[in-house]
Nucleic acid binder design. Sequence first.
DNA 1: ACAATACTTAAGCATATGCTTAACCATGCG
DNA 2: CGCATGGTTAAGCATATGCTTAAGTATTGT
Lengths: 104, 104
Amino acid sequence: MFHALGDASRRGMVERLRRGPASVSELARPFAMSLPAVVQHLAVLERAGVVASHKVGRVRTYQLVPDGLVPANHWIVQQRLPQEKQLDRLGDHLATSTPTDKEH
Amino acid sequence: MFHALGDASRRGMVERLRRGPASVSELARPFAMSLPAVVQHLAVLERAGVVASHKVGRVRTYQLVPDGLVPANHWIVQQRLPQEKQLDRLGDHLATSTPTDKEH
DNA sequence: ACAATACTTAAGCATATGCTTAACCATGCG
DNA sequence: CGCATGGTTAAGCATATGCTTAAGTATTGT
């Protein structure tokens, strides 16, 4: 999922979908790349659970998955919360100079 | 930055640093890869602003950058659908950036 | 029916990524 | 000094990624 968001084009598509559902062609329009390239990007986002699509006639419409980004958000929050304590532990770590592993 | 977090090994290193600063060797220990590979991963994380390092003697110590993940978090929060506010306690929590966590 | 529209699939290609090994500094220590 | 420790640099390699063009398929409009 972080990998899916690691591409600027894909993030741009997500940002577009924030304003509402859109077809493949609509999503492709702002980008200077071929339609198959856009389709591949959307497939990555869909596999990651960030967007969903359904086809009506010959038009495939994409939209954001509700709470689709929550897993990524949750991971980030978990890393972020204990950070305040670590500033205090840095000096401690350096002062004690933890004995490194002897084996190997 | 999302790209930096898009690798499981790098996320593992961030999770390790969550419990406090660590040297390159300490960070490498849990992984079944060579030291240069770990160094490369850490360089990616450092370029992304997620971690920082300083060298003392021959030991380079890494630590999390305080609020280093905030840009990614901010982007994610902005994508959330305005239509669903009922399940939004997590996003609300993140937007206010309160250091006290009580969910989960 | 015919043609345009909206994708879809397949193949290929240049570059990026993640990893390796080998060799190389630099520091700590008996 | 001599040598182990901790890290760095360089080179190379297999695979993944992002993109392309070409050639489909399925619908819709005239």
